[in-house]
Amino acid sequence: MDKLRLENVTYRYDVGTAFEQTALDDVTLSIEEGKITGIIGHTGSGKSTMMKLLNGLDHPAEGKVYLDGVDLNADKKELLSSSSLFEKYQNLSKSARKKAILSEYADFKKNLCFRVGLVMQYPEYQLFEETVEKDISFGPKNMGLSEEEIKKRVREAAMLTGVSEDLFEKSPFDLSGGQKRRVALAGVMAMKPEVLVLDEPAAGLDPRGRNNIFSSIVDYRNQTGSTVIIVSHSMEDMAKYCDRVVVMNHARVAMEGDRKEVFAHVGELSSMGLDIPEITRLAELLRERGLPLTDAIYTVEEATSALLSVFGKGGADR
């Protein structure tokens, strides 16, 4: 099922100035529920703009964005005449219907940012509270949850992201870069969003930090069944962690599909200025040297099993 859907979305920056540019150009796209979708593209391909539209931080110039079939930027007239809410309250009298629809839509808008959680690039810059615990609680507190529920969620989120409870009373500013990143991520996960959107979640981290962040994202999805969207320009990471991949190029969707389908078009991807995973290049080199590798290879795991079967060891070890 589609969790999120963009229909003919167009977005422009700095309209009316010399620097005007189209960030999204007539983009139609569906995000499947419960999957990890990777949105890849080089800088300026429109991917970061898209994430701001997904939780109502910004609205498109043209087109529609839907969450569970509800338009994020519906105007009053539409709401009262043709929306899914209209169908829901069809049986009420006109004035009662109007009241019911408007109040439900207001609630929907209010809760949007809690349902679609956004983790911006370098999220550690958003930390501000005196202690780590308070900072992780900030989002849940804004949701108006009970003390008890907040405490529980903070624990869970800290556990998921690997923030140890010894750090709870520390100031977030005294932590290391990797720890700060995890606290910031926990702050969003504690809101338990149905959709978690992340912009370059591992940017600037060392290999260990990278792996930690990505595995906590995968854990979050597995534990909550949430939909995850990762915006990145690292094909290596996308290949490793995503179920589906969307490739953005020049403000449009260039490719979309299961990662196997998308990564099969390696040539096109590199012509869009994206970096091919090193392992894929290695597989290419091996093919040139005459090794019978048939499948597209984009993770070390796939390369290992493919080569083991080439070497005739496939069955024995795996």
């Binding site: 290999p207 090193e278 392992i279 290695l282 070390v300 290992t304 083991l308 070497f311």
Partner: peptide, 20 residues
């Protein structure tokens, strides 16, 4: 120490571990 080797080298090590 929290580092790694490039993907290609990692592949060679894994193949070695599998007995090649």
């Amino acid at each position: 120490v929290g580092l790694e080797v490039p993907q290609s080298a990692e592949l060679v090590f894994r193949l070695r571990e599998a007995g090649i």
